[in-house]
Design a protein around this nucleic acid. Structure first.
Length: 500
RNA sequence: GGGCACGUAGCUCAGUUCGGACAGAGCGUUCGGCUUCUAACCGAAAUGCCGGGGGUUCGAAUCCCCUCGUGCCCGCCA
């Protein structure tokens, strides 16, 4: 069977793609909360977890383009043992006994206490360690009981560290609509309500003083402890209350998690089911680790790994070098100021890092490699950004020419291929959103550029040998291509420079 | 031991849901292209038992079973 699209299809795509809204789908009326990153506020964001904010942010963006009402949530784990250890360490150790911070930034400054505290607990004098453990336990109990003073002590640490982390994440950029603190569900009593409800369920039992759930019916062999024998709650218990809040506030909830969280997620789902929730409204997107070349994993506690700030700085520095080295043989006469160079370097450098991560299937493990992450040629953000800048260049040189929306004048194979590629974009957004796979948009963007470059090479817009009406139609085509590129990059959270 | 994921050119990866044309890109290698809207680009060449074995099918990278390798998980941690 053979069929081909009608002229109306090409005319429609050409017209629709002139809009800044190109690729956006009609409102679904559905609210979706995308929880991502949610890294414990223990120290600087490192590259080992870089996939979470980049994937999560891109996922939120593609769902937004697909017409959902998206809320981006960072769940702040401020109630666990880690934060109790951190708070104790912060109050106990003297700054004079700590090494110099790697950066003048609160997350780098405070993580020194956290590392020192952990080191002490591992290697310190047993009696002193026991004493410390008592203090730590007191903090956990204070939080669990909703004690205001304890809450404030912990908050002092959490808010400072989180502030530093937010700054780093903002560079990607990964920004959030809500920072939801775990302690909120202790202070409002909802965690303890969950405990009461679970205790009444037919799956609950008590063993060695701890309350737990038998999840055999969900094919989970390990039981789910929801109340310790000392009657304090666990992270997972609080997460149940957290998710009941999500069910209350949103139609749909998606969580971006590392693959190590899968069992936890399954247990959480089963317990939410027991509590009578519609767990079809909850979904997880898992990603595999970013590891270091030697197979070493990145750890905040141990201080191994590459800090995200260092990666981004290096990316921007290399991009600036690339921009400057090209300044001399630029043909286009738009003199770039130092400010322009810096802006472009930032857009290109950070875009390259983002694209490197967002373009791959999240379930595949990545070994971090400086050269690969900072490659500005081939299948990369700069490749797509460059095509966008070229398209902008044509528009900038086209003074006086008015675009003409007439696909009938665009009948060469290169023009037809480009029209078809433009027309595909909304469908790609729809598919990527439905599958929760932002990397499909990255693949589309790269393929789109191949088609655009074929057109760019063979069909000039501005030239003495091009008829005026054809030039006008081609200008409209270039505008549509430019819009497609800009919005595809926008879905991925990558900026589209108008000049490079 | 059990569960989940991954294995496609020297390297990094698309394609696997929903089976269909000689399996596609980029990097690297070899050759070629800036008096023409930006060469961070483009063209050409070489490179593959799609981890292995079996099965289903007219047809399998794709579905099923087995197997090998790698990562992650199997806490009254988060």
């Amino acid at each position: 069977m053979n069929f081909s699209p009608s002229e109306a299809y090409f005319d429609g795509a050409l017209a629709d793609a002139q809009s800044e809204e190109w690729g956006r789908l009609p409102d679904t009326g559905q609210s979706v909360v995308v929880e991502h990153t949610s890294a414990n506020p223990t120290g600087p964001v490192h590259v080992g977890r870089a996939r979470n904010p980049i994937l999560g942010d891109a996922l939120a963006r593609v769902l937004d383009y697909a017409g959902h009402d998206v809320t981006r949530e960072y769940y702040v784990n401020d109630a666990g043992r880690q934060m109790a250890v951190f708070t104790w360490a912060y109050e106990t150790f003297d700054e004079r006994d700590l090494p110099e911070p790697e950066r003048e930034k609160p997350d780098y400054e405070l993580v020194r206490y956290y590392r020192k505290g952990n080191e002490f607990l591992e290697e310190g004098d047993p009696e002193a360690v026991e004493e410390a453990e008592e203090e730590i336990a007191a903090i956990i109990e204070g939080l669990d009981a909703g004690d205001e003073e304890t809450y404030e002590r912990v908050e002092t640490v959490v808010d400072q560290v989180l502030g530093g982390m937010r700054e780093t994440l903002g560079r990607l950029p990964a920004e959030f609509d809500e920072f939801v603190k775990e302690t909120r569900f202790l202070r409002d009593g909802s965690t303890h309500d969950v405990v009461d409800d679970l205790r009444d369920s037919e799956h609950a039992f008590r063993e060695e003083g701890a309350w737990q759930l038998d999840l055999e019916a969900w094919d989970i062999e390990q039981s789910f402890v929801f109340l310790r024998s000392d009657d304090t709650t666990l992270y997972t218990t609080r997460d149940l209350a957290h998710h009941e809040w999500k069910f209350e506030a949103f139609d749909y909830a998606i969580t971006v998690l590392g693959e190590d969280q899968e069992l936890h997620a399954n247990k959480l789902n089963a317990a939410l089911d027991i509590l009578g929730n519609d767990t079809d409204r909850l979904e997880e997107v898992f990603y595999a680790w970013v590891n270091l070349p030697g197979g070493e994993s990145m750890s905040t506690r141990q201080g191994t790994g590459v800090d995200m700030d260092d990666l981004l700085d290096e990316a921007v520095a290399r991009a600036e070098e690339a921009v400057r080295s090209r300044l001399d043989d630029r043909i286009r006469g738009d003199d770039l100021t130092d400010e322009d160079v810096e802006r472009i370097a930032r857009q290109v450098g950070i875009g390259a890092v983002r694209y490197d991560i967002v373009s791959k299937q999240p379930t595949k493990a990545i070994t971090f490699d400086w050269e690969d992450a900072l490659d500005f040629e081939g299948q990369s953000a700069p490749y797509v950004q460059y095509a966008h800048a070229r398209a902008c260049g044509i528009a900038a040189e086209a003074d006086g020419l008015k675009p003409e929306l007439d696909a009938g004048l665009l009948d060469t194979p290169e023009e037809r291929d480009l029209l078809k590629a433009i027309a595909r974009f909304p469908g790609v957004v729809e598919e990527a959103a439905a599958e929760r796979e932002p990397h499909q948009v990255a693949t589309f963007a790269r393929e789109f550029v191949d088609v655009f470059n074929a057109f760019y090479r063979s069909r000039h817009v501005l030239g003495e040998d091009v008829d005026d009406d054809v030039a006008a139609a081609r200008l409209a085509l270039v505008t549509a291509a430019r819009r497609t590129l800009a919005n595809a990059l926008d879905v991925l959270g990558i900026e589209a420079p108008e000049s490079m």
